[in-house]
């Protein structure tokens, strides 16, 4: 019961912070509380949101994925390569992007489980390998001339941005999976105590492999969305995206030691980071200062949270 209450308190606290910053921003700037700006925020948080949901799975198993940004670039380039003007069947480039992402995630998972290498090292390796592959396949240049079929993927349906719909769908599915699937429970158990989970009859390697694959799949999706939005496959895109994603998840109350955390928390973390990014832009803060402020806010939020949960 106590853990539940603390969760509620945590979520309520985050919600309150998001709300207060929102009020402050609408007072401080004229443009924050406009429909066009909020739509823009929604578009911007979608990519980080999709990545954050993916990395939640991995963090819950007490793992980590540092390769997200590079995988976004690689799957974006792959997607763009198959979406040149004149090709009409949009499912092909999308599937290619998702497949490339999943393959990267699976590779991470195989090295973590079968080879037993720490996730930090494996995904650090994948971070440079995927970036290198993206540069090789694109020849170091952005892959342009993308067909409208794909760029439409970043458009609207009835005024709602498609990337936001993707994010919402991904988050809902992930929430449902973690809460109502046997495998979701297994993910929590492995993060809580891997050896005990194995002794309780859980196939630890299979479940971890699945987590890394899902994380890769969602990184692939983020790559596709990014390519559609920017209308190019950028081999240099997505640098440090993993950090924003992991920060959002941790702000949302997920333990880096695994076994504790929720998708709802991740959503709130994503919103907070998106709001801060947008607010700093609107207030005309230079990007150099933005980086410093964001870092301080991330560490401060987690620090406050830890203090709160200890007392």
């Amino acid at each position: 019961m106590i853990a539940l209450d603390r969760n509620l308190l945590h979520r309520f606290g985050l919600l309150l912070i998001i709300f207060l910053i929102g009020i402050a921003l609408s007072l401080a700037t004229e443009s924050f509380a406009t429909l066009s700006n909020l739509t823009n925020v929604a578009r911007q948080v979608s990519i980080n949101g999709i990545l954050a949901v993916g990395v939640t799975f991995v963090l819950l198993t007490a793992g980590v994925d540092l390769s997200l940004g590079s995988v976004v670039a690689l799957s974006g380039v792959a997607c763009a390569t198959f979406a040149q003007t004149g090709e009409h069947f949009v499912l092909i480039p999308i599937s290619v992007g998702l497949l490339v992402g999943t393959a990267c995630g699976l590779t991470n998972g195989l090295f973590v489980t079968i080879a037993g290498i720490p996730p930090f090292i494996v995904t650090l390796g994948m971070m440079t390998v995927a970036r290198g592959l993206a540069l090789i396949f694109s020849g170091g240049r952005p892959v342009a001339n993308i067909s409208v079929n794909l760029t439409d993927f970043a458009g609207d349906i009835g005024g709602v941005p498609i990337p936001l719909l993707c994010f919402a769908a991904v988050a809902t599915l992930a929430w449902f999976f973690l809460r109502h699937f046997k495998l979701g429970r297994h993910i929590y158990a492995i993060g809580g105590n891997e050896q005990a989970a194995r002794a309780a009859g859980i196939s630890v390697n299979k479940v971890k492999l699945l987590s890394y694959a899902l994380c890769g799949l969602l990184a692939g999706l983020a790559g596709v969305v990014l390519t559609a939005r920017t209308t190019t496959g950028q081999p240099n895109a997505g640098v440090a995206y993993e950090l924003d994603a992991i920060a959002a998840v941790v702000i949302g109350g997920t333990s880096l030691a695994g076994g504790i955390g929720t998708i709802t928390g991740t959503l709130l973390g994503v919103l907070l980071i998106g709001e801060i990014n947008n607010g700093l832009d609107l207030m005309g803060v230079s990007s150099y200062f933005q980086a410093v402020i964001k870092g301080v806010i991330i560490v401060g939020a987690v620090w406050l949270d830890r203090r709160q949960s200890r007392s």
């Binding site: 495998l183 158990a189 005990a196 009859g201």
Partner: peptide, 30 residues
């Protein structure tokens, strides 16, 4: 080391080895 999942509830600890029996397909029967 090999028994408890400390962060989880008594219920979740008790049912951990039997989830296959307490599920409809992949879905948990809460």
């Amino acid at each position: 080391g090999l028994g408890l999942i400390p962060a989880q509830s008594v219920q979740q600890n008790i049912t951990l080895s039997s989830l296959h029996k307490l599920s409809l397909g992949p879905l948990l029967d809460h």
